[in-house]
Design a protein around this nucleic acid. Structure first.
Length: 425
RNA sequence: GGAGAGGUGGGUGAGUGGCUGAAACCAACGGUUUGCUAAACCGUCGUAGUGGGAAACUGCUACCGAGGGUUCGAAUCCCUCCCUCUCCGCCA
């Protein structure tokens, strides 16, 4: 959520940002409502002030045994005026709020302006030693491999739940678990994150806090009886851990990492892009979340991205980093790097991670503040998160990049001590 | 699911209609004292909105779980909802 004061003072900047993000511009309506609102507040406060002081007098007069009937009647009328102005105020405040919650975060100045993912900018690429994009032997895709080696079962997943709910079997399940544990341990031991195992269902306030609501309601699973959503990412419960809290400056930065299953309805995205792991409704993800001081958040964005990259380097998987253009940024993000890993069978890059700085956009919605040591003043923290990483996409790259000419899978070296085996055949 | 208790400032906790934005204590911060630490003493110590001011600052308003109601006046009375705790039942 943007600060209405900021909008009031910088309407043109806000309008430009909204346009670059392809969102609806209600700035003019907000501004005129804001004038109306403040005018009402001044009127109401004046009346209330009068009412308060006269009411106090009435108390004293009653004690002194004086007649207060007339004053009472007058104050009742003042009360009525306040009530009717208040109704008007509520109306205009609601309208401002309804518009405000749909205003996206503004892109950071370093973000390229663009309409869609076509205009994202590649920042760097990392390829293992001796890697080449050309392949002499036929590369099996992860679906064929999964079937052949009996480690993935998409059909049975579809039977027991529906399409997009994969089943991991045998060594596939063990590899998945190894990958999750490896990533968690790496972030905990080498990158200094604190592990969190959060709830997988969250309430509306949490979904609002991180900015999934109101925009993405249709993309999430909802348990209607309890009005709880299954999380689309661990970002939601973990960032909301500190909702409505005041932190001390010396507690920052807070770095959390958590593994959770993630659930996404992916409404309206059926078809070619959705086979196998490429688009699923449930997947596993290790997520990093940071709560930091505002002045450090852009350094932290680089740092969290590097933390995700370290995993891929250790796994020896080719990847590239994209800086998202304004039009491809999520609603709440100010700047975002996507990490894509290479799929030789698909012959394309697959998004495995998204590392974003939300500045204080989420912190405002979730009311997460910190007290500055220097002057004791309160300010909103900046929040960031990054996948570190989504296992389904990494799994595609592992299976495809680590296959032998015979169609077996060599377990990446760093995972071998977690799996206890070196090959899947 | 049933029965009961309760939600007040960073914490503990007082407060049942008016002079309470809220006692007291603790914590925190500033100071005095001190070789250092501690103790003691003094002082400061909520958030937000809005108006005035270049600013330091200051006026007013709101906020005692949330929302409504009664009243000239509500932390205090009434209604609805949410949450927490205890006991019982059920269950992993």
């Amino acid at each position: 959520m943007l600060d209405i004061k900021f909008i009031r003072e910088n309407p043109e900047i806000v309008k430009k940002g909204i346009k670059n993000k392809n969102e609806k511009d209600t700035v003019d309506q907000i501004l005129s409502d804001d004038v109306w609102r403040r005018d009402l507040i001044v009127q109401i406060d004046k009346l209330r002030s009068e009412k308060n002081s006269v009411s106090q007098d009435i108390g004293i007069m009653i004690k002194d045994g004086k007649d207060v009937t007339e004053l009472k009647e007058r104050m009742k009328k003042v009360g009525d005026s306040i009530d009717s102005l208040n109704k008007e105020l509520k109306f205009v405040e609601n309208r401002i709020y309804d518009n405000l919650i749909w205003i996206p975060n503004l892109p950071h100045e370093s973000v390229p302006i663009g309409k869609s993912s076509e205009e994202n900018v590649e920042v760097r690429q990392w390829l293992p030693d001796g890697f080449t994009f050309e392949n002499e032997v036929k590369i099996l895709d992860h679906i064929e491999l999964g079937k052949k080696l009996k480690i993935l079962d998409f059909e049975r997943g579809a039977k027991i739940t529906g399409s997009g709910f994969p089943v991991y079997m045998g060594k596939g399940a063990q590899l998945e678990r190894a990958l999750i544990n490896y990533m968690l341990d790496y972030h905990i031991k080498d990158h200094g994150y604190t592990e969190v195992i959060p709830p997988l269902l969250v309430n509306r306030e949490s979904m609002f806090g991180t900015g999934q609501l109101p925009k993405l309601e249709e993309d999430m699973y909802l348990a209607e009886k309890d009005d709880l959503f299954t999380i689309p990412t661990a970002e939601v419960p973990i960032t909301n851990l500190h909702r409505n809290e005041i932190l001390e400056e010396n507690q920052l930065p807070i770095n959390y990492v958590g593994y959770t299953a993630c659930f996404r309805r992916e409404a309206g995205s059926y078809g070619k892009e959705s086979k196998g792991f490429l688009r699923v409704h449930q997947f596993n993800k290790v997520e990093m979340v940071k709560l930091v001081k505002p002045e450090t958040s852009y350094e932290e964005l680089e740092s969290i991205t590097n933390d995700a990259e370290d995993i891929l380097k250790a796994l020896n998987i080719p990847y590239r980093i994209l800086m998202l253009c304004s039009g491809d940024l999520s609603f709440a993000a100010a700047k975002c790097y996507d990490i894509e890993t290479w799929s030789p069978a698909e012959n394309k890059w697959l998004e495995a991670s998204s590392c974003s700085n939300f500045e204080n956009f989420q912190a405002r919605r979730a009311n997460i503040r910190y007290r500055k040591t220097e002057n004791k003043k309160l300010d909103f923290v900046h929040t960031l998160n990054g996948s570190g990483l989504a296992t389904s996409r990494v799994m595609v790259s592992i299976l495809e990049n680590y296959q032998t000419p015979e169609g077996k899978i060599i377990v990446p070296e760093v995972l071998q001590k977690y799996t206890g085996f070196k090959i899947i055949d």
